[in-house]
Write a protein that binds this DNA or RNA. Sequence first.
DNA 1: TTATTGGATTGTATTAATTCTAACTTAAGA
DNA 2: TCTTAAGTTAGAATTAATACAATCCAATAA
Lengths: 138, 138
Amino acid sequence: MKMTPQRMAILEYLDGNKAHPSAADVYKAVADKFPTMSLATVYNTMETLKAKGMVIELGIDPDKKRFDPNPEPHHHLICVRCKEVVDVNGNFSLDLSEKERCNFDIIGNHVDFYGICPRCKKKDRGNTHKIIPNCIQK
Amino acid sequence: MKMTPQRMAILEYLDGNKAHPSAADVYKAVADKFPTMSLATVYNTMETLKAKGMVIELGIDPDKKRFDPNPEPHHHLICVRCKEVVDVNGNFSLDLSEKERCNFDIIGNHVDFYGICPRCKKKDRGNTHKIIPNCIQK
DNA sequence: TTATTGGATTGTATTAATTCTAACTTAAGA
DNA sequence: TCTTAAGTTAGAATTAATACAATCCAATAA
């Protein structure tokens, strides 16, 4: 993989990043110090990194792709209000019965835990309505 | 919920549908017998159904929303090649430790199993390359 | 029956994310 | 240094989804 200043800036931003940023987030962060950066470059680079297994594309937000720079297999804890995503390490050995497997070769699994984060809980103080989200997805 | 011919057509299409269709899929299916149907109506109706908990919005496909007319809590088995989605019933009681919970109130969880479906396995005959998908997402 | 009303439907315009394109630039190996 | 394949860029094009404003229509009120 060819190393360019743009890519280095993106990699530096992603390194250790726990925020699961969108393409726009990456762009904003990097464009600061790199005014010539193009969004297309961000998309290209994320695509390349994805192909190399260095980032994972998340499907949490129906409105935009978000990326996870943590390539270790792990799971997520997602706030259904603000969509904050926290990594959950460890793995769950979940088995499917012969029948449930439907003749698939199983490669792996991923668990999403849904909940309400402390910040949003605070905001909810008194608001008992709409506690059950309709956005538990997938 | 007011019953209109359009909504009835959509509900009829969704009833028992295991294909996890996109809005466009719904539109195509219904527009056949309902030439005046508008995409906007499909989106409106899906939104209404979602709010009523009658469908769930899926995040499997980064390119478009897909809907699951099965309102029972369940999980998914996803072919990483062709994105076929099979329902997995039953629930896994997965626990997070105090620490892992990060002060979230946990509401639920959802498991995605990744694998290769029988059809795609057949196509792969001999192709040993690229068996490990880079599209294990979330 | 007719008028009113409010939600539903529709086509179109708009937005936002993403991809495409074609010209230009550059990192890295010979 | 030279060459070249790969990367970058701006802007155009595409696509999913939403917003909007003008009807439409079914239920109820008068």
